[in-house]
Design a protein around this nucleic acid. Structure first.
Lengths: 339, 339
DNA sequence: GACGAAGATGAAATCGATTTCAAGCCGGAA
DNA sequence: TTCCGGCTTGAAATCGATTTCATCTTCGTC
């Protein structure tokens, strides 16, 4: 039953005051040499570490930030998190993960944690704000950065990609391959990010004067299984598409799976494009053509913006836009000869 | 600039003492009726929430636990985490994620967080203890539960599966399909979990009196890319295997990918078995035959054990063993006719 | 009607650090 | 020699809650 030592134990041991120990350990440069190293030695020897609750209470900071995502099971967030964590560690912060599962209660719970002093700031990767907070106008001024997603009129700084342009490019790639019947499996609408990708698809179609028949826009939710089901619906249309642009990789996986299941060749019968370039996209067969985002960079950038905010600095409200890249792999190919 | 209200603000507003407010809010049943609801009302109205640092300092508990994994990028842990989180929330705890990337410094950092009062307990999913702590014997008695992995002689309670038996079963399945040349891509040896799976493979081979030629055991590290490279080595052997048992799904993905790349049919030319049943295993083509673990259950079970430990209860040191299931899907089939 | 028990509340101590404020000491300048 | 300023250091205040201990009612019982 080792009792954890407290600061006064270290102080007593050397006959100095707790104040001096605190100053020595914080590297403030206020402690003179013979004392300084003796304190450091004893602290190490006793394995002393300051109690965080006491420190946080006194300093009014927790030195940790919250990173809130809609589904922690989605590998898409993991690399972002790595970027966040890395930048956080460099600044002496630790990162707490929050998972909302699209549950509004849980979303506002994380805002509460912020106000409780659990964390000093928050990186939000969900598509919307808890209604309760939005109504009460409690959000403005909080140290919160929105990453990946877009939350209109939130007054919060954003770090994101140009979802519209990237989607447009992806669809244009299909058009260049000769496809004319191009369907889209969306994310959850009407959230910002999903909407932008959908609009990018529409714009590319309109730009090439291609029609968008009824049923070519299927409302999805970024999930694998949903992608599979919706792909089935598309194939059952009287005039099924020859290419499918999916709002994210997981629904694209679902689509490819359904195509395999029905014995349709990818990409010879149907081409598929995803979005996000999650880490397994290259590993499935055939490797997925998809839009790659600089996830770790987005994480790092969000975190450094957040640190700026926490430090009380002002941050530009114009979104920071990171570059994307269309990775052309194995699921897209020239359109099959029209029947 | 809304100032967060403190407990004394609520108290003053009603002309009661902070003590009474605290008692009312904690649901202690010590506050009489007219006062009680007035306090609750005012607290809600002011949007008062107790400061966690102050509370933690006084109560000497943080009401949060640490879940430490070796690679947060591995989807394998995500469902475990969901189980942990669910059980934690039910008990009023929140979960902090820690990521070691197999870095010993970071591993011991999380132990430090435990001692700092950052968390009340820890669920460890890494294969070993930080050497520093092990040497100093600082681990015994800490509220720590090891999940999934096995850490020998650590004196810590374990929640795990029978890795040996499950691996043996998986390999027997291949043997029943007629395979005799069965190779293995291991995890990082000599860690507990990887060793057990390797030994299960060996035992199954020995049990069927099958030889294990040189080079049939390839040292991996659970990573996709490594699985791909090692699969290539196996195929380059003078007598390549007809089946490969991989220590986890990600290396199995790598192996399948390499087989596709070389134009070898799965499972007609080579069968592949994975381990873990991560959420995309079913979505790749062909769907992966693999050993499924009850991940969420393992998470829940670990958490409830941890709560027991935190509450000061004694916990059996015999590992708790959860059931596994071999999911036979599309990557295993009868052995091809011998040439 | 008096006494004891139970119930409601407040005052003050407490958790463990950091930080303010004050004091002591020393050296250099006038 | 005296005074001032700069280092070091310590005593005590502080952060915001919870909890102990004490006080004061109130009610029931004999």
């Amino acid at each position: 039953m080792n009792e954890r030592p407290r600061i006064k134990d270290v102080a007593k041991r050397l006959g100095v005051s707790p104040a001096t120990v605190s100053r020595a350990l914080s590297g403030s440069g206020l402690v003179a040499e013979p004392t300084l190293s003796r304190i450091l030695d004893v602290a190490r020897e006793l394995n002393y570490r300051p109690n965080v609750s006491a420190r946080n209470l006194r300093t009014q900071r927790s030195m940790s930030v919250l990173m809130v995502v809609r589904d922690i099971g989605n590998p898409f967030y993991l690399e972002v998190m790595k970027g966040v964590e890395q930048a956080a560690r460099e600044a002496g912060y630790s990162v707490l993960m929050g998972n909302t599962e699209n549950d509004p209660d849980r979303e506002s719970e994380y805002f509460d944690m912020l106000r409780d002093g659990h964390a000093d700031g928050m990186i939000l990767m969900t598509g919307k704000l808890p209604a309760r907070l939005e109504a009460e106008g409690l959000v403005g001024g909080l140290p919160v950065v929105v990453a990946l997603e877009t939350i209109e009129d939130s007054g919060l700084p954003h770090v994101q990609i140009d979802n519209f342009a990237a989607a447009q490019d992806a669809v244009r790639h299909l058009i260049e391959l000769g496809h004319r019947r191009i369907a889209h499996i969306t994310g959850p609408l009407p959230e910002g990010m999903s909407t932008l990708r959908r609009d990018g698809w529409r714009a590319a179609m309109a730009g090439a004067k291609l029609p968008v028949p009824d049923g070519y826009e299927q409302l999805g939710d970024y999930q694998l299984h949903t992608g599979q089901v919706l792909c089935g619906r598309l194939l059952d249309l009287p005039e099924p598409p020859t290419a499918i642009f999916c709002a994210n990789d997981e629904s694209a996986f679902g689509a490819v799976h359904e195509l395999h299941r029905r014995g349709r060749a990818v990409p010879d019968d149907v081409s598929v494009v995803g979005f996000d370039d999650i880490y397994l996209s290259e590993a499935i067969f055939p490797p997925l053509t998809t839009v790659s985002q600089p996830r770790a960079d987005i994480g790092r950038e969000s975190m450094s913006m957040l640190l700026e905010l926490i430090a009380g600095g002002k941050v530009a409200l114009d979104p920071i836009v990171m570059p994307t890249e269309l990775k052309i792999r194995g699921t897209t190919g020239p359109v099959a000869k029209p029947n």
